[in-house]
Amino acid sequence: MRFESKTSNFKEVILSALIYFVAASLIFAILLPIAWIVVTSFKPEPIVKQPYIWVFTPTLENYWHIFEIRPIWKPLFDTSLIAVSTSLLSLALGTPAAYALARYDFRGRDDLAFWILTFWMSPPVAFVIPLFVIFDQLRLLDTYIALVITHTLANLPFVIWLMREYINDVPREIEEAALIDGYSDLQVFLKVTLPLIKPGLMAVGILAFIFSWIEFLYALIFTSINVRMLTVEVTSYWTIAGVILGPMTAAITISLIPAVIFAFILQRHIIRGLTLGAVRGG
């Protein structure tokens, strides 16, 4: 008996060591480029293109450059505005759609849900040309509206799917109790269901925000002068004279901040959301 438990203990130790090793390798591989970018952003000009130097006296000259010489305030503002608008609009449109798909039984419901999901699977570049033509006709190129619409469309499939799972987790009886207690269908949705899926709204809203914040392709093609997104702005340090690495890495570092903050604050919610409702009733 004791011998057996010893072997199984030994196996467990080996297994968890293996898991930690793989996890650590992955984290290292993912974090190394980011660490390199952050470190580089604090390097003084002479050593900025020498990646092997990890020890030096940090300087803020690159940040001074992006805030004073060639300010990124405008891209920072534009990106925030578009990401926040996208996030709110995605939730405003996606949550009622998700509610209908979760709660109302109609012909072809599951097919419709799957059809929506296929948009998530399709390559974004497939939509670039038709959308470009449409925005051009509507004179919406290089406007906030064009990007908010595009990002919202791109977000909706996963917003709908994730919110549907959160709504499915709310016991149907709670809504039915509210119907009997005196609410209309709309009131039940607004005053009972929404408060109960608040964690889901936050998690999905943040995912939508981050998607919009880091989106590059649509931003590059649909905007240029009036609207400047951070992701596109960063590439502007790639000039004829070469890559201006210091300010570029500083700009990237700044653009990483909101994603990191959100990820930390809502770590639990995001993990919960990504399990797609696999853990029920929690």
Binding site: P171, E173, I174, E176, A177, A178, L179, I180, D181, G182, Y183, S184, V192, P195, L196
Partner: peptide
């Protein structure tokens, strides 16, 4: 509509509003 039938219902799993206190649950209707 259920709200206009002047009925009340007790569910098998009680279906209390989890975000409300006992007072607010009872006061809800």
């Amino acid at each position: 509509h259920p709200k206009d039938r002047d009925i009340s219902m007790v569910f098998q799993n009680y279906a209390l509003y989890p975000h409300l206190s006992v007072f607010d649950n009872i006061a809800f209707p």
